[in-house]
């Protein structure tokens, strides 16, 4: 458990102001919360994306910690190189401090184009935290579909139209893919439940090996909701079970938070413009399908928790 007042004193502000993310952006909230997970010095990498472009417009950088951007699909391999350099120089006595390593990628850079690099880095066992700030589409270039875009969402490359209800595939389960690498720690979190997120970040930074955080991160431009309502939107993702707050700690799956009663998925979909078309009469069956998918995913996770708990 984290204490907000202690955090405000102990943790230096590592991402400073003056970056050019949109007003009300979820990415910087997620980054700030994740970086509250350690007091040690941190070196950060980001894949190409909103976070990277808006925080490092030359000659300005919002990063108060060492930061590198390399390309879109290689945040995980770039941090592999940095972490290996650290181990090499540390064993030669050229570096004395204990340093933590973190790589950020959006869902495009993590679920899609950077998945191979991520998988490789996890398999090799580098000691780093990988954070996918998942805003469910390629938001940097104007909301194009990704492997993380949910079923039924309208994006600019899978738009809703007369012949299509938006994206016609369900999203891929990156957290499960990552967990299949049997790394020490993997978790899903979102910004509304900050204490859950910071606690998971603390566990991730403390892990003896690769750790992964999949953070549902709202984008009001792509999701189309009033910018000030970000925390409420995040909360509805949790309360409807759309984004289960789970962790996989040394192979054991666990819910870190369970709403007393899961709310209907409409509560998450309704305030967002990207799902507006689903509320037309002819598309209502899609909402039912989404609800069914959320229910079965929840059930699957409960089974996983139960089964992995027995094995542990």
């Amino acid at each position: 458990m984290a204490n907000i007042k202690e955090l405000s004193e102990k943790i230096p502000e590592r991402l400073g102001p003056g970056h050019r993310l949109c007003a009300g952006c979820g990415a910087s909230i997620a980054v700030r919360q994740v970086l509250m997970g350690t007091e040690d010095p941190v070196v950060a990498v980001s894949a190409t994306g909103c976070l990277e472009v808006a925080t490092t417009i030359y000659p300005y950088t919002a990063w108060k910690i060492p930061f590198m951007h390399n390309a879109f699909e290689n945040a995980a391999s770039t941090i592999s190189g940095i972490e290996s350099a650290y181990r090499a120089l540390k064993k030669q006595g050229k570096i004395k401090k204990n340093i933590k390593f973190i790589a950020f990628g959006g869902d495009g850079g993590s679920y899609d184009i950077g998945l191979q690099a991520l998988s490789g880095a996890l398999e090799r066992g580098h000691k780093f935290v990988y954070v996918c700030y998942d805003n469910e589409a390629y938001m940097n270039t104007g909301s194009q579909r990704s492997g993380a875009t949910p079923y039924g969402a309208s994006t600019t490359t899978a738009p809703a139209g007369k012949a299509s209800p938006g994206k016609v595939q369900f999203r891929k389960d990156l957290t499960a893919i990552v967990a299949a690498h049997r790394i020490p720690y993997a978790a899903q979190a979102t910004i509304s439940n900050w204490n859950d997120l910071v606690t998971k970040s603390q566990k991730a930074f403390a892990a003896e090996g690769p750790a992964f955080l999949n953070i549902l991160t709202m984008c009001h431009r792509g999701w189309r909701y009033p910018q000030e309502n970000i925390v409420q939107i995040a909360k509805s993702a949790v309360d409807t079970g759309f984004w289960p707050l789970i962790e996989v700690d040394k192979g054991t799956w666990r819910f870190t938070y369970k709403p007393k009663e899961r709310k209907p998925i409409e509560e998450f979909l309704k305030p967002q413009g990207r799902f507006k078309h689903l509320f037309k009469e002819e598309n209502k069956h899609i909402i039912a399908e989404i609800q069914k998918e959320v229910d079965s995913n929840w059930q699957r996770l409960e089974h996983l928790c139960e089964a992995s708990c027995k094995v542990a």
Partner: peptide, 16 residues
């Protein structure tokens, strides 16, 4: 960029 946090010089308050 050989210093950290230089974006502070850029006043995003003007957007408000």
């Amino acid at each position: 960029i050989d210093k950290g946090g230089t974006a502070a010089e850029y006043k995003t308050g003007d957007w408000r």
